[in-house]
């Protein structure tokens, strides 16, 4: 009997890339449930359609690249991209918008660079930004939350909105972040009272969605899928800037820290986008810097930029910087006296 010859280690841990991806998918569920509760079935339909397109694009790219389909599809990374992009898209988006976004994510941002692990930019955010620049109207309208504009659309309407967009006439409403940015005369408190889309401390529905994504992220942290460094640094720097420029709620206020933490894509970004391992910094100190700078950029673009939310831009900009950050944040190796590799 010939004995097998292998090099050590012979034991392997329980973790697999597939499982990492499945955990991430699972962790988005609370957020999706809350979004569906407050904004209707739009997000769900986005995700279903998006997943189909993502699998098709991934298969096409793998076939063109001559890679085995089963082996690469089973890592679930295409599904993760589809989930993340479709959560970020406005509910009730037309099918072609989703298709263009997913195709950009999977084909341009991921497979053209060599597939999973080789992409310098977060695929979901790259797809999002391509859509935002190309179709600003569709991308900056959001459905009104529950209780502000009558009945929420049902599943059938949601499907109609997606696949026969010409026949669907949905109601839209500016997001709280947008309202705040456009405001230049009202005090924060007045703004709160005059606009129905504000809730207890942030946007109506948004505050709950952010809490749900925070919960999902906390679970991933507990499961040790990623480390706390990048998300905590991002939330900290965002809160810090918001606190500095809050100025007690005047008409020029940038919004309270709590408002920024629980509005828009803050928590979703912090736990599902910033933590994307492929495109972020890898050393722990590097992740702190990376996350903190994303928080700074998010605040600046939210308050000073032209777009209502800023996570996608902030993340893409920092994706550029990740290798540079890594270069300067090498950890001190055992037995070395400083960080730069000298003994």
């Amino acid at each position: 009997m010939a004995l097998m010859r292998l090099t050590s280690p012979h034991a392997h841990g329980p973790m697999s890339t597939q499982r990492v991806m499945q955990y991430v998918l699972l962790a988005t569920v609370p957020g999706i449930v809350v979004l569906t509760h407050f904004f209707g079935f739009g997000t769900l339909v986005n995700i279903l359609w998006g997943c189909l397109v993502a699998l098709a694009c991934e298969s096409l790219a793998l076939k063109l690249r001559g890679r085995p389909l089963g082996f690469y599809l089973k890592d679930c990374s295409a599904l993760v991209t589809a989930f993340l992009l479709c959560i970020a898209l406005p509910p009730y988006s037309p099918w072609w918008l989703i298709a263009v976004g997913i195709a950009s994510s999977i084909l341009l941002a991921k497979q053209l660079y060599g597939g999973l692990g080789y992409n310098p930019f977060n695929p979901a955010m790259a797809g999002y930004v391509i859509l935002l620049i190309s179709f600003p109207v569709q991308m900056t309208t959001w459905a009104p939350p529950l209780g502000t504009a009558g009945e929420l659309p049902g599943l059938w309407e949601a499907l109609q909105a997606c696949f026969t967009p010409g026949l669907y006439d949905g109601v839209t409403m500016a997001t709280p972040l947008d309202v705040l940015k456009q405001n230049n005369s009202l005090l924060i408190d007045d703004l709160w009272q005059q606009n129905p889309q504000f809730g207890t401390f942030a946007g109506l529905g948004w505050e709950w969605a952010n809490l749900a994504f925070l919960a999902g992220g906390a679970w991933l942290l507990y499961k040790r899928i990623f480390t706390w460094h990048a998300p905590v640094a991002m939330l900290a720097s965002l809160s810090l800037l918001a606190a500095i420029f809050y100025d007690g709620g005047s008409s020029a206020s940038g919004g309270s820290p709590l408002f920024h933490l629980f509005s828009g894509a803050t928590m979703f970004g912090a736990f599902f986008i910033v933590t994307d391992p492929v495109t972020s910094a890898v050393s722990l100190r590097g992740r702190l810097i990376y996350g903190a700078l994303i928080g700074v950029l998010v605040y600046i673009i939210r308050v000073r930029g032209n777009y209502p939310d800023a996570v996608a831009f902030a993340v893409l900009i920092m994706n550029f910087a990740a290798p540079f950050i890594d270069y300067y944040t090498q950890p001190r190796t055992y037995g070395h006296s400083d960080k730069r590799g000298e003994k």
Partner: peptide, 15 residues
């Protein structure tokens, strides 16, 4: 027997 290696996703679990 170890399955074929997949792409590195830079998750940092090794670090």
């Amino acid at each position: 027997t170890p399955p074929p290696a997949q792409a590195c996703i830079r998750c940092g679990m090794c670090a």
